[in-house]
Amino acid sequence: MNLFRLLGDLSHLASIFILIHKIQTTRSCRGISFQTQALYVTVFVARYIDLFFRWISLYNFFMKIFFIASSVYILYLMKYRYRPTHDPSIDTFKVEYLVGPAVVLSLIFNYKFEFTEILWTFSIYLEAVAILPQLFMLQRTGEAETITTHYLAALGAYRALYIPNWIYRYFTEDVVDPIAIVAGLVQTGLYLDFFYVYFTKVLQGQKFELPA
């Protein structure tokens, strides 16, 4: 565990609290992609199946439980509690285009051709692109509530912070995980446009609006 990794995880935690806070205070999941949230549940369940056979640490254990539980809770809020506030007609990204390639890639590029190993790999590839339905929705509506942009910024920061964490681990622990690194770089890259608008607009006190 190094500082980048810890800050990354805390940023990930913060993003989830921000999202739940947004839904509960505005009593609405407007602007949030249900598909992206459903993909995150898939990612966490596929990756953290190792709770059953790999013990890492108490920290790791509780974080995994938290990420699975909170992502399922968010789906519940969107699907039942605040269902009328979700507009499926603007959340139209075809998730098959993400899940399909993630399945195929994980079958080809993995460390070991074993069920749980492929699930882990699948979860890494799927997480890399899981934000796309959300970004697609943002692109379509051209604007976002400020709190939603804070959620996305915290989520993007989590991924960005994992990069210096890998560099640090390469030098100090000799750990290199090419699958996680390549997928992580792709994932972080997807946020670049968003970050540009976030830094130049939202953090200057303006509303998040894309040029028409």
């Binding site: 990794r5 995880d9 990930h12 190792d50 790999r54 890492i56 640490s57 790791n60 974080m63 995994k64 990420f67 460390y111 882990w120 994992y162 964490n165 890998w166 681990r169 000799d174 750990v175 290199v176 995980d177 699958i179 996680a180």
Partner: peptide, 10 residues
């Protein structure tokens, strides 16, 4: 062998 990979990451 998991030792050389990042499986301890979240």
């Amino acid at each position: 062998d998991d030792d050389a990979t990042g499986k301890d990451e979240l």
